[in-house]
Design a protein around this nucleic acid. Structure first.
Lengths: 140, 140
DNA sequence: CAGAATCCTTCACGATACTG
DNA sequence: CAGTATCGTGAAGGATTCTG
């Protein structure tokens, strides 16, 4: 991502042809970091990670479900599967009857949670400021 | 959001009726902090904020556009308007011809950027780890 | 309990065309 | 340059039903 600046500022403008720009933009889109950042930056990932993080212990599926505001069963399953696949969540199935499934953050997930929690706290602390900004904007 | 834990752990289970749960979930959905966190947690907000942040100076519309990988003109405009409305971005129109429009982070936006930049850096640093986790998961 | 599967709706988003 | 307006589509997401 930092390359954007270099290309933009160190390469003489005339040398950035349309073709090169298209290639560059395709690169940015396909850049693993951009792609990963994009996949993290979704409502359900954010809320699910926060829920798993604040509880600091394995949580049953139904428990997660009750603590992620507004999530449907389908989206929660889909989100948890994605997080498991990305190595951020560990899913443990206990062969009881009925089955018991636990979800918990991995070390990788825990690292990310540390950052997301700060964003969550920022949102909590600045909700009022944003509301006022919106009111002022809508006033006009 | 922290109330979720209290309800879950300090209120006797039998007292959580279906009605109360529905009310609680509606509250969570409507909670300003959850709502704000959700609106922040989108791909275009994340990428746009990062672009405005790394450059540390006012940017023209076209310049932002070139530095947010894969964004369409429609989505960029929509995202910038949303950020302006939320008080995170300041939009300045210079009455020249053709018009010149600059976008820059406000103090509020700058605060948030500080946190989002950490998430972006995390994504950059852990893209490989996630890729390996995905490969391992898909192996099965 | 913890989902899978299916259907159906909405809307996020892109493509295109037009404008001051 | 910096948009607005419109249209069309695919994907996101909800509701419902079924299952081990």
């Amino acid at each position: 991502m930092a390359r954007g600046r270099e290309v933009e500022e160190t390469v003489p403008v005339p040398e950035i042809t349309v073709e090169k720009r298209v290639t560059y933009e395709a690169y940015m889109r396909d850049c693993p970091a951009v792609s990963l950042l994009s996949s993290i930056s979704t409502r359900w990932v954010s809320l699910t990670m926060c829920t798993l993080g604040v509880h600091e212990r394995p949580m049953r599926y139904s428990e997660v479900s009750r603590n992620v505001p507004g999530v449907s069963q389908k989206m929660l399953t889909q989100t948890l599967r994605g997080l498991e696949r990305d190595g951020m969540v560990r899913r443990t199935v206990a062969p009881t009857s009925p089955v018991r499934v636990d979800y918990e953050l991995t070390d990788l997930g825990w690292n990310l949670y540390g950052l997301l929690a700060q964003v969550r706290d920022w949102a909590h602390d600045n909700a009022d400021a944003v509301d006022h900004a919106r009111a002022a904007y809508d006033e006009l």
